[in-house]
Amino acid sequence: MKVLVIIPCYNEEANIRRVVEDLRRQAPWADYLVVNDCSTDASEAILRADGCNYISLPVNLGIGGGVQSGYLYAREHGYDVTVQMDGDGQHDPAFLADVVRPVADGRLDMAVGSRFLEKKGFQTSFMRRLGIHIISFLIRLLCGVQVLDTTSGFRACSKALTAYYADHYAQDYPEPEAIISAVLGGFRVGEVPVVMRERMGGVSSINPLKSVYYMVKVSISLVVFRLTVGRGEARLKYLNGPDVAPKEERT
C-alpha cells in the first residue's frame, strides 16, 4: 500500500520544516510531496537545503492548482492513497493513519478529517465555524451527503479519486467543491474525527471580513457548480482500466 501525503506550501517558511519533520517522524510509512506554490519567502530554499521531496510551481496557481499537481504526481507514481495535509502545522500527522484507514480498507473513496465530530482541539473562531456549518448545510442540500468539516484540508483519497482529481479539480474554493464533485461522481465520501491544532507560526490567509466574503463566494460557486454538473459515473470510469493512467489533455 503506497501512501502519498501532499503538503501544499505557500509562504510557510516558519512552519514547513517542522511540518515535514513531524510527518516523517510520526508516519515514516508514508511518502510525501511538498507543493511549493511559487512562494515568495524562503520556503523553497528551506526545502532544498533539507533535501525534501518537493515540486516548485513556476507560477502561483493557488491552492486548487497546487494540490492538483500533487494528485498528478500521485497518479504518475501509482500511489494507492493520497492524503492532503496543510503546510501550516494545523494537521497532526498522528491522525494520518486514522484518515488513511477507511480509504485503505476500501470503505470510502474520500475520508475527510473532521474537527467537529468529537469537538476536541482547536475549533477555530465563531464566524468561521458558522460559515463552515452553512457550507455543510448547503452541501447536504445540493448532494445529500453530510460532511461537517467542509473546509478541512486534511483528507485521504483513493486511487480512483486521485486519478479523477488529477483530471478535474476545483480551482477557486477547492475544499467544499471537491466534496460535491466527488459525491456527484459516485465516490463515497465520509468523515473521521481528528484533533486540529492552531497554526504554528506565520499568518493565516483568512481574516474575519475575508471569511464572510469567502462564505458568500463559496455558496454561490457551489450552487452554480451543482446547477452545471449532474450525477455521473465518474467513479466507475476511473475505477477500472485505462482512465487511471495519465491522460493527455484534449483541446
Binding site: 515540486i55 513556476p58 496557481l61 492538483q68 499537481s69 504526481y73
Partner: peptide, 12 residues
C-alpha cells in the same frame, strides 16, 4: 495551469 503543473513535475 496544466503547463505549470507539468513543468513542475518535470523539474522535480
Amino acid at each position: 495551469k496544466r503547463m505549470a503543473q507539468k513543468q513542475a513535475l518535470l523539474e522535480q
